[in-house]
Write a protein that binds this DNA or RNA. Structure first.
Ligand SMILES: NC(=O)c1ccc[n+]([C@@H]2O[C@H](COP(=O)([O-])OP(=O)(O)OC[C@H]3O[C@@H](n4cnc5c(N)ncnc54)[C@H](O)[C@@H]3O)[C@@H](O)[C@H]2O)c1
Ligand SMILES: NC(=O)c1ccc[n+]([C@@H]2O[C@H](COP(=O)([O-])OP(=O)(O)OC[C@H]3O[C@@H](n4cnc5c(N)ncnc54)[C@H](O)[C@@H]3O)[C@@H](O)[C@H]2O)c1
Lengths: 264, 264
DNA sequence: TACCGCTTGTGAACGTGTGCACAAAGTCAG
DNA sequence: CTGACTTTGTGCACACGTTCACAAGCGGTA
């Protein structure tokens, strides 16, 4: 029931940012070709967006250390990517480099921030103030980067009213009122898995359009809501897979030598 | 200096699991073509591995509810993916379905666990027992899924010796000894960013081959070590990008109507 | 001004991953 | 046993993302 769609994370495109069916069935080329900023923004691949965020952090660190310009080679090394990829990523947002010289750090920071929409503050609400919720509420890294945690919610009556990380916990029934008042644009779900979908529905009803989900469940949301999930169990299992693969490799090598075959 | 390579997560392949230079420069086809299990494992795309972990969780839930068989349609719906993609993912690990019927839940669980290497336990060590480290140490979801948290480390003398989530915190100088003794195969880094690289180096020296990094820094590791990172700031910024894109879209629509052009 | 060396920006080739659509293969009723 | 129906497994085409390689452009130098 309802809009059923996978959450997309880095992990493969899933249903891509597809134009609505209604839009596709209108084959007539629309009005004026390119509302510049908008088209550019839409054209940036999701994977590149995630990397831009990384570049931004590296650039900030460089700026603090007094760097004025940076070449694609330096920046890519610091960000742990291929330099060609870096240049292509930057080309999605425009041409702000100087050939033969490099990029001006401040300019690049500004432009990336603009594209990522960081010129505006995005209030964050955390729902489920348990182990993880406490950690998130106490974390200083978010406010510093333009994401003030401005609302906390839980069902536990012992928690409601208690201040965590400087702000009081509200009951989840207050989600609509508090989210509206504080203009929450991002909701973070840190409840037990069984409660996640219900909490998500409430956030969506309250007008929250972006959700970061820590509960290991697949959330169902309407099309206009963006969900990203952080699934630690999956991360560990992927690592486990690599351990297993390595073990197999080693075993294969062993077997090879036991067979009396010398290679290389 | 040192092997420089980006961490790979869902976010695009980066330097792909490239064969060693040494291997490439040996153009002679090697001994016996295919050590079956090994080749199969290697062929599974990273994105598919991450999804297999999700299927596994959904299957476990279904099993608890008494389901015996499941069709690709049902399972894919529950996992939030396309049913064709699900079948393709499952085909990477073999043919365990029955046409006209579906998959036997227990069989599928077994096979996925085998491929992901979950038949073996993977001891986890957490380094940096602050906000996040506490949450991780207290989290019950890991041991239950075959990832016992069996060692905790910190530098803070006030923390060393204190039990968190049932086990005592050790000093990071004990990493080699404790990791060896408890056969730690996965290290989790939850220290402040400046300490992350040093901690990583220590873990690698201690023989840990897989690392899950929560600190917002790009870790440099030798080729044989697998790193995955969880970067919440990046997640939020990607969401922010989507908010901005949406805002632009809306603005574009407005502009269009203001221009007196009626479309649709 | 003309040249040279350096770095960007990008066209094009490539590889990987996704989704469609259908043959193959099974179940079940009669 | 046959035929209708269901669902898997996969070949294929396509889209997306990565990488290569190089022309274009800039600053510095003679
Ligand atoms: N703690 C971790 O390190 C960790 C790691 C990976 C995943 N997770 C996931 O994150 C989520 C939270 O984990 P945790 O360890 O903080 O759990 P927790 O049990 O410590 O906290 C859950 C909190 O959610 C509250 N809650 C329960 N139902 C609620 C509802 N309907 N609405 C609002 N709040 C509600 C509870 O009162 C509690 O405070 C879980 O889904 C867990 O699987 C946690
Ligand atoms: N708390 C969050 O919700 C959150 C969210 C996103 C990212 N992070 C990242 O996770 C990491 C940890 O965050 P936190 O909030 O738990 O920080 P924290 O300051 O609460 O805890 C850090 C812990 O690491 C320990 N530590 C410091 N140097 C160390 C070293 N060299 N070796 C071992 N331990 C050392 C400290 O003693 C402290 O206990 C940080 O890198 C942070 O950026 C945290």
């Amino acid at each position: 029931m309802a809009a059923q769609r996978g959450q997309r994370n880095g992990v493969g495109g899933d249903t891509p940012p597809a134009p609505t069916a209604a839009e596709i069935t209108t084959p007539i080329p629309r009005v004026a070709e390119v509302p510049a900023a908008r088209e550019r923004a839409r054209a940036i691949p999701e994977a590149a967006v995630a990397r831009l965020a990384v570049y931004l952090r590296v650039l900030s660190a460089m700026q603090e250390q007094g760097a004025v310009t940076v070449s694609s080679e330096e920046l890519s090394a610091a960000a742990g990517v291929n330099s060609a990829k870096l240049r292509k990523d930057l080309s999605y947002i425009g041409s702000y480099g100087t050939r033969g010289v490099g990029y001006e750090v401040t300019v690049l920071i500004e432009e990336i921030e603009r594209i990522l929409g960081l010129t505006r503050k995005h209030s964050v609400a955390v729902v489920g103030i348990g182990n993880l919720g406490h950690a998130l509420a106490n974390y200083g890294g978010f406010p510093g980067r333009g994401f003030p945690v401005s609302a906390l919610f839980d069902v536990d009556p012992d928690l409601v009213g208690v201040p965590v990380g400087g702000i009081a916990v509200h009951h989840i029934d207050d989600i609509p009122a508090v989210c509206a008042e504080r203009e929450v644009s991002i909701g973070v779900i840190a409840t037990p898995p069984p409660a996640a979908q219900a909490v998500c529905d409430r956030l969506v009803e309250a007008g929250v359009q972006c959700i970061l989900n820590f509960a290991p469940v697949v959330l169902q949301v309407p099309d206009h809501v963006e969900v990203r999930k952080v699934d630690l169990a999956v991360e560990l299992q992927v690592l486990s897979f690599h351990v297993a693969r390595r073990a197999d490799d080693a075993a294969a090598m062993e077997g090879r030598q036991v067979n009396g075959m010398v290679v290389s």
